[in-house]
Design a protein around this nucleic acid. Sequence first.
DNA 1: TCGCGGATGAACT
DNA 2: GTTCATCCGCGAG
Length: 203
Amino acid sequence: LKIEGFSVRRLRHRDLPEETVALARFLIGKLVVRRAPEGTAMGRIVETEAYLPYDAAAHTFIGETPRNRPLFLRHGHAYVYLAYGTSWMLNVSSEKAGVGAGVLIRALEPLAGIQLMRERRGTEKLLDLARGPGRVAQALAIDRRLDGVDLSTDPNLWLGDDGFAAAEPSISVRIGITKDAHRPLRFFVRGSRFVSGTKALNG
DNA sequence: TCGCGGATGAACT
DNA sequence: GTTCATCCGCGAG
């Protein structure tokens, strides 16, 4: 499939690692594609975080509830929730069915549908379109309607690969949590201006 | 570049 | 009533 000059192949269920850290690393350099009536937008993933089974910082730590149910679906489903009453977060379920875990998509490098992202975000600044998980969701118009969809089959939200060879990601602690805060479970492209977080964290 | 506080809604004690 | 996997604007350094 051609999207603004990029040749993109949809990632199918069998393409995705069935383990949370492996998936968090695998997704660096891959694409998020969002099709909507207004147009298609796409970005390259430059930052992820892993939320493991038995992880005190994870939403699944308390067990399965109506909210976190998509995290217990087999890997490759979207878990979308509202944080702080203002920001939607996009996660990808990351283990076999029945095991609750996920990967948070924290930042994208905008590649296609950039004007649409500017309108949705209310800013012209390329660097601010999808730097941070709330911005990712706003730029791609992701909200509760996409909670639970299967990313390997959904027509409006999916993961893609354009053959880009990503460098080995750098690793740090996760952002914005207090429990299990020391664990090295954030993965990012060192040197990318599209990555969130402070300079110290990304150096 | 950084750190702070307010906005805002859902889930849980 | 408290706790958030955040963003934005502002002021200090």
